[in-house]
């Protein structure tokens, strides 16, 4: 990662540009996994343009509130963008249909598969094939695999939460590597 970062800086990119590119990569790594796992519906013929217009309008509203990039070192020692650190805590700390321990284990499992630094927490055997696909090649997830989770006794809300935690872990691993590099560089510079 540091070689990529050094190369990007030599090419003239500042840290804000690097962070924003990483932000987009994280955004789509997360949404792609969720789209593949849940099989998002697409608007019908002729409605895609309307959807694009609506998204552009939403983007122009959001752009007025563009926060400046900043990061936070969490209790676990990892460095994350401040908004991501807040969501990480909410996602893994909010009471829901799945237990907090299981959600943390799922997040750690998928993050480890993508090179993230996490403790090796036990994950139920019946979830492993689904989580491996979610982390490594989500486009291979099938209807039958999601239905088998229902058959195993997981509720709709539990499947939603565990899929979210899994997609999150797999997507955030690369972002954490980048922020660790940026943060270290800033500390050295200071």
């Amino acid at each position: 990662m540091s070689a990529v970062l050094a190369r990007s800086r030599i090419d003239g990119l500042d840290d804000v540009a690097i962070e924003d590119a990483a932000n987009i990569a994280f955004h789509f790594n997360l949404m792609n996994r969720l789209a593949d796992a849940f099989d998002f519906d697409l608007p019908g013929q002729g409605k895609v343009e309307l959807l694009a217009q609506m998204l552009n309008r939403a983007k122009s509203i959001a752009s007025k509130k563009r926060p400046s990039p900043s990061w936070k070192q969490a209790a676990d020692g990892r460095v994350r963008p401040i908004e991501i650190a807040l969501v990480h805590e909410a996602l893994l700390g909010t009471v829901g249909a799945s237990s907090l321990d299981l959600r943390c284990a799922v997040e750690a499992f998928t993050a480890r598969l993508r090179g993230g630094v996490r403790p090796n927490l036990p994950v139920p055997e019946d979830l492993v094939p689904y989580l491996e696909k979610l982390s490594l090649h989500a486009y291979r997830i099938t209807d039958e695999e999601v239905e088998s989770l229902f058959a195993l006794g997981y509720s709709k809300d539990a499947i939603f939460e565990l899929t979210l935690a899994g997609a999150w872990g797999a997507s955030i691993a690369a972002l954490e590597h980048l922020y660790a590099e940026l943060y270290t560089d800033q500390r050295v510079a200071a």
């Binding site: 924003d20 955004h27 997360l30 963008p81 969501v87 909410a90 829901g96 939460e161």
Partner: peptide
């Protein structure tokens, strides 16, 4: 929006940042 407490507002703000077209890209 399904679980607003698990994916609170800061995430929506963060995700829209890179795509807003206001920054370097």
């Amino acid at each position: 929006t399904y679980r607003p407490r698990m994916l609170p507002r800061p995430l929506r703000r963060y995700l829209s940042r890179g795509m807003s077209g206001v920054g370097p890209w």
